[in-house]
Amino acid sequence: MAVNLDLISGVLSFLFTILILSYLIGDNPLFRIAVYVFVGAASGYVASVIFWQVLKPRLFDTLISAVLRGSLVEQVLIFLPLIGAALVILKIFPGMTGFARLSMAFLVGAGAAVTLGGALLGTLLPQVQATINIFDPQAAAARNIGAMEVLGNGMVILVGTVTSLAYFHFGAQPKTDGSVRRFGLIEIIAWIGRIFIGITLGAVFAGVYAAALTALIERFSSLVNFIVLLRTTLGF
């Protein structure tokens, strides 16, 4: 007997969508069942990916290959990540957590260096340069942007960047009345910065809502498609 996988996946999709949407009437056992199944399936999937796509090809297979055919240097080098992983695993034993610090020190040090280097060369310097060059008419013309648009955009971006940065300047001095306030000019610039930050957060919120709305419409589409598929399959 042929198994209709489309129908089975459609049934599961329909069922879980209904179970999750049941949260609209409040927290209930059906919703929790769906969440538990989802968490379990997701955890199992991630564990399987980690084993088959990371541990097996990058550690175990390489290790076996190095032991059987590699030189002494290769064998030593391949044991280093294994030792690092073993030290992290030791964290589960309360008395041996200190050993994990060696691996963690390497991970934190290397990770911070890579992140800092990337942030400096990939964000800070290019973004500062882009803000400085925002009024460059030649660069704008190359991207089909008119002179007035350059001026308008440039002013908004420059004022927005400077005032938003000023908002995060929290240096302040105590006043004679005991209150602590920022320097007057900084306070005014920071107030303008708050408006720009508010607009940015508004744009992000609109994006969050748009993403959620699209997901909702896709679920509606999925439910309708399932009913159509069911009608076609069962012939009613």
């Binding site: 290019p126 973004q127 340069q129 882009a130 660069a139 992000v204 994006g207 748009a210």
Partner: peptide
């Protein structure tokens, strides 16, 4: 749509 405004500056910088 949620992450696009945060990526926009990287487009502006080329």
């Amino acid at each position: 749509a949620q992450s696009a405004p945060m990526i926009e500056p990287y487009y502006d910088s080329g």
